[in-house]
Every structure is written in structure tokens, then in C-alpha cells.
Amino acid sequence: MSEDSGLWLLAAGPAGAAALYWALYRYYRNTDKSHGFEHETEIVAKPVTGSDRKVGEVKGTQQRRIDGDNVGDYRRRVTRLR
């Protein structure tokens, strides 16, 4: 009887490790909560509008940035069409 009482402790190690692994996997992967953009988002394509016009020319590597770029201004750069 005393031999059987310690058997559960021996089985608890691998069972606990498997449960911890599965819990951490589900927490960090959270595949059940992730958003499948390709399958769950409806995109209505519209014709491309706009015009092409040359505004200037940068030659060489002296200028690191283009004048008037909006890289840092996220809200102005990404706007929703209404």
C-alpha cells in the first residue's frame, strides 16, 4: 500500500510538465484568438486614382531623407477612405 501512495507523485512530474507546456503554448500562440485577415476581412477594391508628377530629383547619397516625407506622421500617412 505504501508503494502505491508514492506512484501518483511520480506521474505528477510528466503530467505537470505536459500541462505547463500546453498552457504556455496556448498563451503565447493563442491561435484561437488570432485574426485571420485573409479569411475574415472583406476588402472592396476600387480603381486606382491619382497622378504622376515629378517633384524633384535626388542624386548621390548626400541627402538621407526626402524633403516633405511623412514617415514619422503616421496619422496623416494612413487615413481611412470614407
Rank of each mutant, 00 (worst) to 15 (best):
E40P: 00
E40R: 04
E3V: 07
R80E: 10
V48W: 09
L10M: 06
L24F: 02
K33C: 09
R53N: 05
Y74P: 00
R65D: 15
E42A: 08
D73V: 04
L9Q: 13
V55W: 13
W22C: 13
Q62K: 11
T31Q: 08
G16R: 12
I66C: 02
A45C: 03
R29H: 13
T61I: 05
W22F: 14
K54W: 02
N30I: 02
T49I: 06
Y21W: 14
D32K: 12
R64G: 09
T61V: 07
V55R: 06
T79V: 07
D73P: 00
R80M: 10
Y21E: 15
S34H: 04
L7R: 11
R64L: 09
V71I: 07
L10A: 13
Q63E: 10
A17D: 09
L81T: 11
V48R: 03
G6P: 13
R82E: 13
W8M: 14
A15R: 08
T41Q: 04
L7G: 14
I43S: 13
L7V: 12
W22V: 10
K59M: 12
A11D: 13
G50Y: 11
R75C: 10
P14E: 03
Y27V: 09
G60D: 06
S34I: 11
S2N: 08
L24H: 08
G16E: 01
K46F: 14
D73I: 00
N70Q: 15
V58M: 00
P14A: 10
N30T: 07
R53T: 06
A18Y: 05
F37C: 09
A15S: 15
L81F: 14
R76N: 07
T49C: 10
H35W: 03
K46Q: 12
R75T: 05
I66A: 11
G36N: 02
L10H: 08
E40H: 01
R53D: 01
K59G: 14
G68S: 04
Y25S: 15
V78I: 11
H35E: 12
T41C: 06
P14D: 01
T79A: 09
I43G: 05
D32Y: 07
I43P: 04
Y25V: 11
V48L: 09
R26L: 08
S34F: 04
T61C: 14
G68L: 15
W8K: 12
E38P: 05
R65C: 07
K54R: 03
D69A: 11
Q62N: 01
A45S: 15
A17P: 02
A12Y: 02
N70K: 13
V78K: 06
E38T: 10
E42H: 11
D4N: 10
K33E: 12
A17F: 05
H35Y: 03
G13H: 15
I43A: 01
E3F: 08
A12N: 10
N30S: 14
L7D: 09
K59V: 09
R82K: 13
G56H: 04
A23P: 00
M1G: 00
T49L: 14
D52G: 14
S34C: 11
K46M: 05
V71L: 13
N70H: 06
F37A: 06
R29P: 00
T31D: 09
Y27H: 05
L9V: 10
T31V: 06
S5F: 00
A19P: 00
A11R: 04
R53F: 05
K54V: 01
L9K: 14
G56L: 03
A19N: 09
S5A: 02
G16A: 09
